[in-house]
Write a protein that binds this DNA or RNA. Structure first.
Lengths: 245, 245
DNA sequence: CGTAAAGTTGAATTCTTTCAAACACGGTGG
DNA sequence: CCACCGTGTTTGAAAGAATTCAACTTTACG
């Protein structure tokens, strides 16, 4: 069964290694003798800050990165979690300042991809992969929009946990019904537009009702079926992503 | 001054006519002897329904189309307004069922674009245009996510009105500080996750505070500066969209 | 072991929804 | 031209959901 496509860059490549499918890797290597330009980040370190220029695309190969932005009123919005295989740094105006900050939650390995767009214009298949990734990202953002707009706190938290679980499972990063979950309750709150106090009460309720539990940076799905029903199955609409096939 | 880029397909083409820039039009015409395959819709007519297959890309040349989806609980979510020059029908699995419905709010002229992806793979510049459009769309969805998650009703409605005003103004569809606004209060509610009752009270408040007014399908910006301050300027982050320059 | 950060709990307040009823407006048919 | 109908808008009062504030407990880490 195919999983939620989210924002994977190379999801339909069964031989992919650390999120990079070999055919893409080959193109990138051909065009850049220094590829891969890898480096690592520790938890709490920023890849780039909102408002700064970076003008690069990045590929997350290992770890967990959060995209955040600070609103005028000083509130923090978490845009999304970047998981291994996802692209970072793509924005409308690539020469303009970064519209989000990118911060590592775990030890992360990142790959800088210079001249990505130039390479794209030489390799249409790469450009179409990028289109595919962006369309999935749009759809995910729109799903979150629906989720945040039309649900109560219980459903919001359930949706978010399930969405992340699906994406982790697709990458083989789960362990049965448990998966790593480095987000704090404040992080969940800042993703969903709730307060951490209310997230806390909601998590207790979710555990009491035997739906899911989050403890010590581990997410456990207690009742997958019931959770799916509660969330409303919309994640299934992302289950295929074959824009290019 | 550049405006909010939103999801324009050909925004940086000064000679664009009805949202289609000539160089793109040339490519599309070369590859398809029957282009443009235009047709029109009346208010209330659907271009396609959620769950049905259509397998086509469409370009809106005139009018106003709403993308909607119905949740499990029967609530209607409006994903976004499609304005002239915007693409429709792009989704993760182009061969799968439509994830949204598309309904016309005004008399609309639509252009069917067959084999879009095939043409893209022959014309890298077209593929990159598509990437640009999708990145803008993602950013817009993420902005709405922040808006819906972290603001109260007054700010939500103000944000939505300003965002639509900016996009209409970019297209020259405004008339000074007024612009067409075919959405009902229920439509606003279904976009923002509010009830129409509360939208009504909020609109009254916005008018009483001299920020904006919506009457008889017309939006009037009463105090642009104050509105921008209230919304928090985040729309400016979309003001450039030069991914490709 | 001590400190800071994260999580937990209760009570009061604020915001939004719900329900119910009335009003306004545009279009249709008589 | 007017009565009628339906949809969309307006208003009030009560109920419900989430936030705020404040205090307390637990956990992580040097």
């Amino acid at each position: 069964m195919k999983q939620n496509c989210a924002i994977d860059f190379c999801r339909h490549c069964p031989e992919s290694h650390h999120g990079v499918c070999p055919s893409i890797l080959k193109i990138l290597t051909q065009n850049n003798s220094h590829f891969p330009k890898q480096f690592s980040l520790s938890p709490g370190q920023y890849l780039y800050h909102q408002g700064e220029h970076h003008q690069e695309f990045y590929l997350l190969r290992e770890g967990w990165i959060l995209l955040t932005s600070i609103t005028e009123e000083g509130k923090r919005q978490i845009i999304r979690s970047v998981l291994p295989g996802d692209l970072l740094g793509v924005q409308p105006d690539i020469h303009g300042p970064a519209i989000y900050s990118a911060i590592a939650l775990q030890d992360s390995i990142i790959c800088r991809i210079p001249d990505f767009l130039k390479i794209c214009s030489l390799h249409p298949e790469l450009a179409l992969k990028l289109v595919q990734a962006e369309v999935c990202e749009t759809t995910l953002a729109e799903l979150y929009m629906t989720n945040i707009g039309h649900r109560n706190a219980l459903e919001k938290v359930a949706f978010m946990a399930l969405e992340l679980y699906q994406r982790l499972k697709y990458r083989g990063l789960n362990n049965g019904y448990t998966a790593p979950f480095p987000l704090s309750q404040k992080d969940i709150a800042d993703t969903l537009g709730l307060t951490s106090v209310h997230v806390n009460r909601t998590l207790n309720k979710l555990e009491k009702e035997n739906l899911l539990s989050i403890h010590k940076h581990e997410l456990t799905i207690l009742d997958y079926e019931k959770l799916n029903t509660l969330v409303g199955m919309e994640l299934q609409s992302l289950s295929t992503c074959d824009l290019l096939s």
